[in-house]
Design a protein around this nucleic acid. Structure first.
Lengths: 195, 195
DNA sequence: ATAAACATGTAAGCAGTTACATGATTTT
DNA sequence: AAAATCATGTAACTGCTTACATGTTTAT
């Protein structure tokens, strides 16, 4: 349902995009709020073009097709933000796994947490690199300010996750430590945000 | 696909549960890593019972049925954690909206951010209440330690989100402020976690 | 008594994935 | 010359939602 709005959101920034570019943007961190497989993007683009929400911008000899948003598309994007209730339901495979680790032996728990740490670290480095490259091109428009804010959020959340994974490793692998003490470093920092 | 594993994860803790209880747990913060509609849970439970992953624990006169996990179910849960790759793809409607706010006028932006702040605050209060009630019943088993850690993570992430929303409001509504300065209070706190 | 919450399930339809098919362009 | 990446699309299947149908228990 929201793939339509994720595509409209990406195209609203004014740059024409092909289906391939859109699915690549959804795959990596740039537009990481929504994921979709390439085939889903292609068929959704066809439906949206038929409905008049987007239009073909350019189509070359061999079929490479870029799209732009139409006025109707912008109207629909605004209507969605204002009229539709946000969907706060979560499907987070990685978190579900971290909640279930206790059923395994310690060696395997350590291995799986390390793999998750490695993933989140790669993600953080990617975000840092993108933000660095991107801060220079700074037209200070509303779009820019909104996008910059999103980078800050993604980096903050990823850092908190990494810090939490460190605590989880200790809590699950060493039964002598007190969980509350182990997470004190994290809860102290979080408490400061309330002030 | 992972609903099966979310149900196995919930039942692995040893308490028999009905379909209604499982879908309620997925709906509120207790098992908030995975969401599913009640009708999906009911049909999934039937499939899983047929496959031998769970078994009927008790069925009363009027059809109220609770399930427990079987040995095959525990084996499948462990196999999933070890053999299947974690799915890190995200579908986050609320974040997608916050990324797209710039297309609206300031009054509407303020209204929508306030609504999101209210939601996250309710969530945080709920989590704090649950953790308080739950810390006393403390058998200090691996399950308990794993679950306690999850509460810490959910509360940390929610607090960071709230703090970030405050910054977003300023950045989008007052074009005179510098985004980097506005988020300094958040990035400073996050930097401390790296040390 | 009535309403809200508890409790289960089926059927239709839409959302999303995986597998397959095809071919061009760029890099090694 | 071969492999990787770019690029689009169809078909079959599975996951998930919404609407409907039914009845019980608990609180007001």
């Amino acid at each position: 349902m929201a793939l339509k709005h994720a595509i409209l959101s990406a195209l609203s920034r004014g740059v024409p995009r092909t289906g391939y570019e859109l699915s690549a943007a959804f795959r990596d961190v740039t537009d990481s709020a929504w994921h979709a497989s390439p085939s889903q993007v292609y068929s959704e683009l066809q439906k949206m073009a038929a409905a008049g929400l987007i239009a073909v911008h350019k189509r070359d000899d061999r079929g490479k097709t870029s799209y732009v948003i139409t006025d109707d598309g912008m109207t629909e994007l605004r209507r969605w933000l204002i009229d539709d209730e946000p969907d706060h339901s979560v499907r987070d495979d990685a978190s579900l796994r971290m909640l279930t680790l206790w059923v395994l032996d310690k060696e395997t728990i350590g291995y799986l947490i390390d793999a998750e740490v490695a993933f989140q670290q790669r993600r953080l480095i990617q975000l840092e690199r993108l933000l660095k490259e991107w801060k220079h091109v700074r037209p200070d428009t509303p779009v820019w300010r909104n996008r910059y804010s999103s980078y800050v959020m993604n980096m903050s959340i990823t850092t908190v996750r990494l810090s939490w994974l460190k605590g989880l490793r200790t809590v699950l692998l060493d039964e002598n430590v007190d969980p509350e003490e182990t997470f004190a470093y994290l809860t102290d920092v979080i408490d400061k945000l309330h002030a």
